[in-house]
Design a protein around this nucleic acid. Structure first.
Length: 117
RNA sequence: CCAGACGGCCGGACGGCCGCUGCCUGGGUGGUAACGCCCUGGUGGAGGAAAGUCCGGGCUCCACGGGAAUACGAUGCCGGCUAACGGCCGGCGGGGGCGACCCCAGGGAAAGUGCCACAGAAAACAAACCGCCGGCGCGCAGCGAUGCCCGCAGGCAAGGGUGAAACGGUGCGGCAAGAGCGCACCGCGCCCCUGGUGACAGGGGCGGCAGGGUAAACCCCAUCGGGAGCAAGACCGAAUAGGGGCGGCCGGUGGAUCGUCGUCACGUUCGCGUGGGGGCGGUGCCACGGGGGCAUUCCCGCCCCGCUGCCCGGGUUGGUCGCGCGAGGCGUGCAGCAAUGCAUGUCCCAGAGGAAUGGCCGUCUCGCGUCCUUGAAGAGUGAUCUUCGCGGGGGCGGACAGAACCCGGCUUACAGGCCGUCUGGCACC
RNA sequence: CGGAGCGUAGCGCAGUCUGGUAGCGCACCAGUCUGGGGGACUGGGGGUCGUGGGUUCGAAUCCCGCCGCUCCGA
């Protein structure tokens, strides 16, 4: 069975639900919010980069690095039954990419999400 | 060579691995539906400002019979360009710079109103603080000429002083002192001539000077302006709830209402109209009864108020269109000082939607900045110290900034660099 | 996308329309009253008026361009 790619969180209500009911784990390069659904369905992921981080160019670059890190990590180690929100911060842009991936892996482990298979 | 002015342009290059998205081609597949999804191959994929959202348009919807006026807002030397503009080009006038050039909201102050603090006598129909001048009267000094003090009624506005600004400026004459009182030049106003499409410029004549500034104060004049914005707007539209129409079934009482048939009163154009009360019938509008549900029975409590079949429209989540051939880019020629226009050839060149155009790495480039190292230079007898103009090597940095319907401008931000024209200075021939 | 407003002393606000002197409260400093503190009274210091131009004799004020912040509507 091929690994199902994660879906996306898009609506404001979904973000608020994860922020209100999920766990929050800050690490060096990012802040992770996760809500365990425990239903076996594929994970859904959303990204937040606020205006405080910088102008549009900086925000775009921050979000793209987070997207790429999440894509590579979830392709290698897929997770199920969770809604995940990744929040970019000022250090996300300058963090070494391998370290950033490591940050994300550590944060996911702390939230206790379950891997597929 | 140094310093500077103006105009135009670029905004790192190449490659590897893994991805995103539009279109085309071929194959597979999902959903009740509107519509999608997956895979192979090919191909396209941010900017000069995409930014700020300050103007002008296209496009779409709304409003509107035409015109004029008023109000409000914007613009404001002249001519041209443009779809249009508050934009651009070329001129004029004023200001700045040795110069190349740069800057200017630059109509009207003899239509009216307001304001001009402080200072100053006076801040706008003029007036007179100190002052200048002669006359008259009294006094003092002197032999006298005359001078001085005080007072009175006058003449004057040159000088002093205040101010950002004081009712033309400079000079000569003139006068008791003065004054456009007279003259010359400058300024100003009016008229005429010449050149120019025009702003305006040049010349001549007349006037003795009238009219301080402020309109980015109110205002006057001229010109322009309907409003909203792609979340405009159009189409499709599952499920649930709700709305409307038609038909079938059940339905006890009262009220309400509708239809119909008598009756009474009043009015009458004798057709009838208005009002009161009554009989019959219809209606799930209201109340009660009643019915149904909460496993069943009784009591209590709570909830629901027609059931069912077919059809119709509105509309939420959502989906599709609008949405990429255009005031289009590039090249050439012609007209024009130019903005720009015309002709012709050629090209098709981003279309996302929690929002694609990327992530990571390598090589090269850089004449820029910074740091290290080596060399170098200088100081010292020396250990060593100082410096970075020059040579070699290495590390880090390398701007401003991300399309959101499209186009023309404006404004603002920007590392570094390239090209062209021109100005001033120095040196050499 | 459209609209409105704000920026003045460390803080909160006047002054802007109608241009000439920047003021009020709290806070701060000094003195007096008190044995000391608190408190009261008296006196005092402190402001590129967000920023860059322009108009004017003169700008916090009028006009234009930027910067930052807040709010409202779709």
């Amino acid at each position: 069975m091929a690994p199902v790619p994660p879906g996306r969180l898009k609506r404001r209500a979904e973000f608020l639900r994860v922020a209100g009911q999920g766990r929050k784990v800050p690490v060096h390069g990012l802040v992770l919010q996760a809500l365990i659904r425990d239903d076996g369905e594929p994970a859904r992921i959303g990204f937040t980069v606020t205006k405080k981080v910088g102008n549009a160019v900086v925000r775009n670059r921050t979000r793209r690095r987070l997207k790429e890190a999440a894509r590579l990590l979830l392709r290698a180690e897929p997770i199920v039954g969770a809604d995940i929100v990744i929040i970019g911060r000022d250090s996300t842009r300058k963090r070494d990419f391998l370290d950033l991936q490591d940050d994300l892996r550590r944060a996911l482990r702390k939230t206790g999400v379950s891997h597929a298979g």
